[in-house]
């Protein structure tokens, strides 16, 4: 059941670089699971988290195939978060920083995220019950 509460999270790390990405996605998952709305402001390298062309890979060190490896991609994880939000009847508003997207040529993303700016983060934060900024190291 929807709680009516909203949490805003800013993330900055590019995918597959820092445990921050995994932790941020775990926090978003927990918040949605509890029935809260979640705003995400993806800044700098984090705009790559939702890139549609991401592909899982085999592991030549272990000798495993793509299927055996079950390598998770951030875009699939985030797609599942959008599905969870829909199932829970809450809103996941994923905002990719437009200038960061343009710099990186990272505009081809999965269904769900939208283009925005730091102004959106300020407005989302001001209207939220909680805000967490996860800076890059």
């Amino acid at each position: 059941m929807a709680s009516g509460k909203t949490i805003t999270i800013a993330i900055m790390d590019a995918p597959y670089e820092s445990a921050n990405s995994t932790t941020a996605l775990r926090i978003i998952h927990a918040a949605l699971q509890q029935g809260h709305n979640v705003n995400v402001f993806a800044y700098e390298g984090a705009v790559n988290l939702t890139m549609k062309a991401q592909q899982p890979h085999a592991n030549p060190v272990k000798g495993t195939t793509v299927e055996q490896e079950q390598h998770p991609t951030t875009k699939d994880w985030i797609a599942s978060l959008f599905k969870l939000a829909k199932d829970k009847g809450v809103k996941l508003d994923w905002n990719n920083c437009g200038l960061c997207v343009d710099e990186r040529g990272a505009g081809d993303w999965i269904e769900g995220p939208r283009r925005g700016s730091p102004k959106d983060f300020l407005e989302a934060s001001s209207a939220s019950d909680a805000t967490l900024v996860i800076p890059t190291k």
């Binding site: 509460k5 949490i7 932790t23 775990r26 926090i27 998952h29 927990a30 918040a31 699971q33 509890q34 809260h36 019950d129 909680a130 967490l132």
Partner: peptide
């Protein structure tokens, strides 16, 4: 776990 963290944040 993260459930607890979300509760604390809110």
């Amino acid at each position: 776990d993260m459930d607890h963290l979300v509760k604390l944040l809110l």
